[in-house]
Each structure stands twice: as C-alpha cells, then as structure tokens.
Amino acid sequence: RTSMTEEYRVPDGMVGLIIGRGGEQINKIQQDSGCKVQISPDSGGLPERSVSLTGAPESVQKAKMMLDDIVSR
C-alpha cells in the first residue's frame, strides 16, 4: 500500500477544536481515518496553520473530510 504525505491548511483559530480536550479529537481523527495527523506548532502569525497528513490516499481523504467537518461547524 502506498503511503503519501499531503500538506493541508486549517484556520489557526480552529486548531484547539481539531486537537480537542487532551488530544481527544485529533486521536479520533487518526483512529477513524487511519491517517497520521501532524499540526505544525506555530502558524507564524498567519491566519492558517499547516497540517501534514500521512497515510494511504483514502486515509488522507477521510482525514481531510473529518477536518473540514470540524472547521465548518
């Protein structure tokens, strides 16, 4: 199975929601999608934060859908 890494961007203000209490939400995204999700520690003052998604292409797609779902709330 091919693994890929894709850079994705999320609004900086949503990072807390994506990570969740004690990392609960980000762990759920990783478990449900099978994709490794790494959020860059700092946006460098930019409105968006970089997130790197690593996994099989379908896992990366699923993680993106889950991120979009959180961001659109």
Rank of each mutant, 00 (worst) to 15 (best):
R1D: 14
R1G: 10
T2W: 02
T2L: 10
S3D: 15
S3K: 15
S3W: 14
T5N: 07
T5S: 09
T5F: 04
T5P: 02
T5W: 03
E6N: 05
E6V: 15
E6G: 06
E7I: 12
E7N: 09
E7V: 06
E7Y: 14
E7H: 14
E7Q: 14
Y8W: 13
Y8E: 03
Y8M: 12
Y8Q: 03
Y8G: 02
Y8C: 02
R9P: 14
R9Q: 15
V10H: 02
V10Y: 06
P11V: 03
P11N: 04
P11A: 08
P11Y: 01
D12S: 15
D12C: 07
D12R: 15
G13C: 08
G13V: 04
M14Q: 05
M14R: 04
V15F: 10
V15D: 06
V15L: 15
V15Q: 05
G16R: 10
G16L: 03
G16V: 02
G16H: 12
L17Q: 12
I18G: 04
I18F: 08
I18H: 03
I18A: 05
I19N: 12
I19K: 13
I19E: 09
G20T: 02
G20L: 00
G20R: 03
R21L: 14
R21E: 15
R21A: 14
R21M: 13
R21S: 14
G22T: 06
G22N: 07
G22D: 12
G22A: 08
G22C: 06
G23Q: 08
G23P: 04
E24R: 12
E24P: 01
E24T: 10
E24Q: 10
E24A: 09
I26H: 03
I26F: 03
N27R: 14
N27S: 11
N27W: 06
N27D: 12
K28E: 05
I29Q: 01
I29K: 01
Q30C: 08
Q30H: 04
Q30L: 05
Q30D: 00
Q31D: 07
D32I: 08
D32H: 10
D32G: 07
S33I: 03
S33V: 01
G34P: 00
G34N: 06
G34E: 05
G34M: 04
G34H: 04
C35L: 01
C35T: 03
C35R: 01
C35Y: 01
C35M: 00
K36I: 09
K36S: 11
K36Y: 11
K36G: 03
K36E: 12
V37G: 00
V37W: 00
V37A: 04
V37M: 08
Q38Y: 14
Q38F: 10
Q38W: 08
Q38N: 12
Q38P: 01
Q38S: 11
I39D: 03
I39F: 07
I39N: 02
I39V: 11
S40H: 10
S40W: 06
S40I: 10
S40M: 12
P41K: 15
P41C: 12
P41G: 11
D42P: 13
D42Y: 11
S43I: 09
S43K: 09
S43V: 09
G44I: 04
G44Y: 10
G44D: 14
G44F: 06
G44C: 09
G44P: 08
G45I: 09
G45F: 06
L46H: 08
L46G: 15
L46A: 11
P47I: 07
E48I: 07
E48N: 07
E48A: 11
E48L: 08
E48D: 12
R49L: 07
R49S: 12
R49T: 12
S50N: 10
S50L: 10
S50G: 10
V51K: 01
V51Y: 03
V51D: 01
V51F: 10
V51C: 06
S52Q: 13
S52L: 15
L53C: 04
L53A: 01
L53R: 00
L53K: 00
T54C: 06
T54N: 04
G55K: 01
G55H: 00
A56I: 08
A56L: 09
A56G: 09
A56M: 07
A56P: 11
A56N: 05
P57E: 05
P57C: 03
P57V: 06
P57F: 04
P57T: 04
E58I: 12
E58C: 05
E58W: 04
E58V: 06
V60G: 01
Q61W: 07
Q61K: 14
K62N: 03
A63P: 02
A63D: 01
A63M: 00
A63Q: 02
K64L: 01
M65W: 06
M65E: 14
M65Y: 05
M65T: 13
M66D: 02
M66P: 02
M66A: 06
M66W: 03
M66L: 11
L67Q: 02
L67G: 02
L67V: 04
L67Y: 01
L67N: 02
L67C: 02
D68V: 03
D68Q: 09
D69S: 08
D69Y: 05
I70E: 03
I70T: 04
I70S: 03
I70V: 11
V71P: 02
V71I: 11
V71L: 13
S72D: 12
S72L: 09
R73F: 07
R73M: 13
R73L: 13
